[in-house]
Design a protein around this nucleic acid. Sequence first.
DNA 1: CTTGCATAACCTAACTTCGG
DNA 2: CCGAAGTTAGGTTATGCAAG
Length: 200
Amino acid sequence: MAENHYLISEASKKINAEAHVLRYWEEELGIEVPRNEMGHRYYTDEHIQMFKKIIELKAKGYQLKAIKDELTEDKMEPKEAEKTEVSVVEKAQVSPVVSSGDKMEQFHTIMTNIVSQALAANNEKLGHEVSGKVSERVIKEMNFIMRLRDEKEEERFKKLDETLRSYQKNHKARAEAAATVTPVVKLKKKKRRFLSRKKS
DNA sequence: CTTGCATAACCTAACTTCGG
DNA sequence: CCGAAGTTAGGTTATGCAAG
């Protein structure tokens, strides 16, 4: 199965969000988006999944900062997910509204403790939920494996790019004997834009 | 084959809106 | 008033197509 690469327009359609929003999230959430030779962003299926998660969290009322924290934790080693159930629950308690402030942090800690105790007391009741968490972990493991595969894939693309570029260089050498043409073309383009702006 | 033109898609940076 | 979350503006680049 070949890894899919999506341009920003395709990705935005896939997740039903505007392209500028994706760029905004990229900037705000510190998402690393690789670029192609043209400098255009390209997204993988992993990015799509991440964006879907972001949308989901936003729908729950999370602020971008909280979402960022959540994503950062997800990026940790998969083994990290093998902590106790309580820690998994704690993860889910990232405040949807508040992202800073000592008092709120204290409140958050207290609330986390209360919830943890309640969970311990009602462990049996939560059996089905726990299984949900487990499957969540499986997904995280899958994501990690996918990411490793992506990286390999990306490396392959880079090598391919290099090969293409050196090939093009060799062939351009000749073509660029007449290369003085290129700046001329650019000047012509500029002139065209100038004229079209003048018209409007 | 080359040129000219229109259009689509992309980019960054500045700006606006809105809730607390 | 301020920060978060978007939106808009202005410019560049790629691509497709018709005409010379």
